[in-house]
Design a protein around this nucleic acid. Sequence first.
DNA 1: ACATCATATGCCGGTCACCGATATATATAG
DNA 2: CTATATATATCGGTGACCGGCATATGATGT
Lengths: 118, 118
Amino acid sequence: MTDRPLQEPTLLLLTALADEPRHGYGLIQEIDAISQGRVRMRTGTLYGALDRLLQQGLIQVEREEIVDGRARKVYALAEAGRSVLAAEAERLRAVVDEAERRLAGHRAPATRPKGALA
Amino acid sequence: MTDRPLQEPTLLLLTALADEPRHGYGLIQEIDAISQGRVRMRTGTLYGALDRLLQQGLIQVEREEIVDGRARKVYALAEAGRSVLAAEAERLRAVVDEAERRLAGHRAPATRPKGALA
DNA sequence: ACATCATATGCCGGTCACCGATATATATAG
DNA sequence: CTATATATATCGGTGACCGGCATATGATGT
């Protein structure tokens, strides 16, 4: 399946769905808020990613509704998406920790015995 | 330019250079260590990324040397690369924090069979 | 009446980072 | 003498993301 690391827009999408279900346009706004206005997700990215994540089973359409005459699809994080997001967050945190440790000047021994590579 | 968020292989590359200069193959091994063996960077990704990062001024060739009859290029993190990595780490940490915060305040979605629809 | 912004979904062409394979070369271990 | 580790490099393909465009309604402004 998709063992590949998530790119940031996708990571933000799953994060925006982690607390409650939202519809497409609401996700754009939520991502804008999460990133302190630094990320404006394009609709091209959004709906493409939504389709992809649906197909991968990481999210699901919770319901469809009509608000003020405008149709909405409300997406929810699926179980699979929840665990993928958790794993991804844990992995990324480790990398970020390591980056900041090294930038701070502490040389944490990441050294391993020779021949560790298969 | 480098306004776009770094992808993970690139992030790992800069991280691997953050404590000391390394040559190409050494970077593959270091990234293997940092990621606890989870990421095996391909040479196609590595040398392509190295060229790109050189051109962006995020890294530089510190020296070239010959060890045991094999040529090496030793790369070092440039000042620009150091600040980009720092900014990227800070940004990613915020996203990861937010993701874990939302996951912890768990709101499990109704696991509905497909076909259920409003 | 007309314009324009905010809301809302969706498609399509292009770009580029990454992947996998391949090529080349030396040193060491079996 | 063959395989593995070390070491650099190129190339074609894939796919996520970007930017632009199309479409439609409701609210606000002039």
